[in-house]
Structures are given as C-alpha cells and as structure tokens.
Simulated scan of single mutants.
Amino acid sequence: MSFCNPIPIRLKEARKKAKLSQKALGVRIGVDESSASPRMNQYEKGKHTPDIGTLKALADELSVPLSYFFCEDDISAELAVNLNKLSLSDKQKVLEITARLIDESKKG
C-alpha cells in the first residue's frame, strides 16, 4: 500500500482558493522574492517538504488550520477548515455530536 503525502495537494488547493500565485504566497510568508515562486513550486510538487514553522506560516497566511495540510481526504480537510472557524463552545458541541454518531454506529 502506497502513501501519498497530502501536504502538496492541500497547499495547492488552499493557495488557489486564496487566489494567490506561488510567488505572492512565498513573499507573504517571508521568502525572498527571487526564490519565492520556485520554493512554493517545489512544495506543491512534493520535491521538498516545508518545515513545521514554514507550514504554520503558510496555514496562517491561507487561513487554514495547520491540521488541514495533514488530512488524507477532502472531507476531512473541509471539516478541519470548518472546525477552525468555530468558537470553543461550538467545537465542544461538534465533539459531542460526533461521539454520539460513533456510539450509534457501533450499536447498529
């Protein structure tokens, strides 16, 4: 079974949704203008993986949670983004709802 690194896919999706070029995104997170586009391209192609600090800067700039980059499927990624927008009390409600759903699925 092969594993596909989700970071390049998620990075490209979030960047396109934010309507930013690779160069603009790189510059916004502090990469030198001359290397911003090539570096973002390498991240999106999976040739290099950003360190966790860079990934956090990218997440902040793209308004997604850090966990978004590690989601293995689109639904989980969308859930991560939506959860990030909720208040702490609403996140607690979602946690309770999902716990009930899991419990119900085990019963039946």
Rank of each mutant, 00 (worst) to 15 (best):
S37V: 09
L55A: 14
D74G: 13
P8L: 11
S34A: 15
D32G: 12
R28W: 04
I52G: 01
M1L: 00
K107M: 03
D32P: 07
K85L: 15
K93A: 13
E33P: 06
N82Q: 13
C71Q: 11
E33D: 14
N82M: 11
D51R: 14
K47F: 04
A24T: 15
S67F: 01
R100Q: 01
S35Q: 07
E13P: 00
G30Q: 12
A77G: 12
S37G: 08
Y68R: 12
K107C: 01
D74I: 14
K16R: 11
S63P: 05
P65F: 13
K16F: 06
F3Q: 12
V94P: 07
Q22C: 07
I97G: 05
I102S: 12
T49H: 01
E78C: 11
T54W: 11
G46A: 06
D73T: 11
S21E: 02
A57W: 06
I52H: 06
F3V: 14
D73P: 11
K106C: 02
S105N: 10
S87Q: 07
F70A: 03
E13I: 10
A18I: 12
K107I: 09
G26W: 02
K47W: 07
D90L: 03
Y68L: 10
H48V: 10
L20G: 04
A59H: 09
E104K: 15
E78Q: 13
V31A: 06
L66C: 08
E61P: 06
K91E: 05
M1R: 03
Y68C: 06
A36P: 05
I9R: 15
N5T: 13
T49I: 13
V27I: 14
S2M: 06
S67A: 08
N82L: 13
T49N: 03
L66G: 03
R39H: 03
R10W: 03
Q22H: 08
Q92C: 08
F3D: 04
L55G: 05
E13Q: 11
G30H: 08
L95W: 08
S89V: 09
E104P: 04
A80K: 08
S34T: 15
L79K: 06
D32C: 07
I29E: 08
S89T: 10
L58W: 07
K47C: 01
C4N: 12
T54S: 14
G46H: 01
R15Q: 13
T54H: 14
D103C: 00
R28K: 15
F69H: 12
K16T: 05
S76N: 11
K107N: 09
L11F: 13
R10G: 07
K107F: 04
A36I: 02
M1F: 00
F70T: 05
P50N: 10
D73H: 11
L95Q: 10
A57M: 14
K56T: 07
S89A: 06
N84C: 04
L88M: 03
